[in-house]
Design a protein around this nucleic acid. Structure first.
Length: 261
DNA sequence: ATGCCTAAGCCCCTTAGA
């Protein structure tokens, strides 16, 4: 069973590329981020035509997440992260969607970027990460096969980026961002791509600017965290890198992992 | 120190992304 995640940067602008990728790589579950579409505009029927059923949480202009499954409708288990305290402000960003597919719990996340830092956007990122951790602890306690996949907007290690110095001031690399990510791993979650590539040097994102793709100036921010029930069955993980080089590509490449039946 | 691209809105510039 293959589960994939793809920050597509606009579901409508990217639709031909997205359909092509689904048909060519045929993941059982595909989690999408940065759909950038309101609920009404989500092209569900295009996915139906190629055999994928979808649930989605849209928003005007920005954010937006979706879960697609091959031949079966995802059973939604949550949309949006819970508040930590009742007094916390409402969070209207569409960044979290969770479902069950064939007995596997899958959470699709689009974690806030947090730039510029310091500032309110960075504070929002760190607060969001705390809420994510709380939800992941609930998922952990279910003791079911579970994957939390998506754009984490965190570069975990210096060897997850082409030039650490170039990104040193970026929110993606701040110690507080990394610490929050490491706390998730500390809870026991397995970083699937890292496990398969422990020495780093694997990128999932290349900026549109400054010829970053041509120069291979990328970094790894799309992650797939697995509960032990899934990590024990992990057989492969990778990046569909060549999709980044195609016409009208997203600035992210799809990532995926495979588990034994 | 800044822009380099790209998408979307309601729109020919601004906002946001990472």
């Amino acid at each position: 069973m293959k589960i994939a995640s793809f920050n597509i940067n606009g579901v409508k602008a990217r639709l031909p590329r997205l359909l092509e990728w689904l048909v060519e790589t045929r993941p059982k579950v595909a989690c999408l981020q940065e759909v950038k579409s309101q609920d009404e505009g989500f092209p569900a029927e295009e996915f139906e035509k190629i055999g994928y059923h979808a649930i989605w949480h849209g928003q005007k202009s920005f954010n937006g997440v979706a879960i697609l499954a091959d031949g079966v409708k995802p059973i939604e288990t949550r949309r949006g992260l819970p508040k930590l305290n009742d007094s916390d402000p409402d969070d209207d960003h569409a960044r979290y969607l969770e479902a069950e597919v064939d007995g596997v719990r899958v959470a699709c996340i689009y974690l806030p970027n947090g730039n510029p830092q310091p500032g309110p956007k960075f504070d929002y990122k760190l607060a969001w990460m705390e809420r994510l951790r709380a939800r992941m602890r609930e998922l952990w306690a279910l003791e079911v096969p579970c994957a939390v996949v998506g754009d984490y907007n965190v570069i975990p290690h210096d060897n997850d980026v082409w030039a650490p110095k170039a990104m040193a001031d970026d929110a993606l690399m701040q110690p507080a961002s990394r610490d929050a990510y490491m706390r998730l791993l500390g809870d026991g979650w397995t970083d699937a791509l890292r496990t398969m590539n422990p020495r780093g040097g694997v990128w999932t994102y290349w900026d549109y600017q400054a010829g970053a793709w041509q120069r291979d100036h990328g970094f790894r921010i799309d992650h797939m965290l697995l509960s032990p029930e899934l990590a024990d069955r992990l057989v492969a993980a990778g990046v569909d890198k060549d999709y980044r080089g195609r016409e009208k590509a997203s600035d992210h490449a799809p990532v995926w992992f495979e588990i034994s039946a």
